[in-house]
Amino acid sequence: MIERLWYGLRDSLRLWLAPERMRAEGTTPDYRFSLANERTFLAWVRTALALVAGGLAVDQFLTGMRPAPRTAIAVVLLAGGALCAVRAVNHWLRTERAMRRGEDLPLSRFPVLLALGTAVTALAVVAGVVLGELGR
């Protein structure tokens, strides 16, 4: 099982670094589907950038909050942005490969995890702001 996982990861990384290899995967889909997949990729990258910007904003502008929780929230947002960017590439690759092979599109739990993580982080920021205001 570990060997299969390793080879799958290795093959995916090869496609990340040499996308021309994708042409060996099945047949070329209608270009409109590939372009839609690319737009989805760009939306995930924008989401990643927004998470990074949110992490920087929490660190720089919520100065009324204690340093430890402020730093923790900022790090969670920054790590979420990095994870979201990596996930964007992986999802684009898996979707493009599935389209070329005529397979079902890949399913992912990531959107749910991202939404829940964002909600929990937002509630932590609200709590920090409220408690910061009450502590003044």
Rank of each mutant, 00 (worst) to 15 (best):
E20W: 08
L107C: 10
P19D: 01
A48G: 15
Y7E: 15
R100L: 02
G80A: 15
R10H: 11
W6T: 14
S12G: 14
T27E: 02
T27G: 03
G135D: 10
E103H: 08
G54I: 12
A74N: 09
G81H: 01
P29V: 15
D30T: 06
V120K: 02
G135S: 15
R10V: 14
A24K: 09
L5T: 13
R46Y: 00
A98T: 09
A115G: 11
V112I: 09
L77E: 11
I2A: 08
G8I: 07
A68D: 15
T47W: 00
N37S: 00
L51P: 09
G54D: 00
L105R: 12
L78C: 13
A72I: 10
P19E: 00
L49Q: 03
P69L: 00
V45A: 08
R14E: 12
Y31V: 09
P69N: 11
G128F: 02
V129Q: 06
R46T: 13
S34C: 00
V86P: 06
R100C: 04
L116N: 03
M22N: 04
A98Q: 08
S34I: 06
L116S: 07
A53G: 14
E96N: 09
S12C: 08
G55W: 07
Q60V: 00
L9V: 05
A36H: 04
G128C: 06
V129P: 05
G81D: 03
G132D: 04
Q60C: 00
R136I: 03
S108M: 12
V120Q: 06
R87G: 08
G132Y: 00
G102F: 05
A98S: 11
E20C: 03
P19T: 04
R66P: 07
R66I: 05
I2G: 14
R10T: 03
A72M: 09
R39N: 03
L62E: 02
G132P: 06
A36V: 15
A79G: 10
C84N: 07
S108A: 01
W44M: 14
A50T: 15
A88W: 00
L51M: 14
R66G: 02
Y31Q: 13
A122L: 13
E3R: 00
V112K: 03
L78S: 05
P29D: 05
T71G: 10
A53D: 04
R14Q: 13
R14V: 15
L116P: 06
L77N: 07
R21Y: 12
A57K: 05
A53M: 11
G132W: 03
C84S: 12
F110H: 05
M22Q: 09
G102E: 11
V130M: 07
F110C: 03
D30P: 05
L78D: 07
L131H: 12
A24V: 06
L77G: 03
R70G: 09
R109T: 11
Y31T: 04
G102H: 07
V129A: 13
E96A: 02
Y7C: 08
V86Q: 08
A50Q: 10
L9K: 03
R10S: 15
V112D: 06
V58D: 04
G102L: 01
R66T: 09
E3I: 09
L13K: 01
A124M: 04
R70E: 05
R46N: 11
I2D: 12
G80E: 13
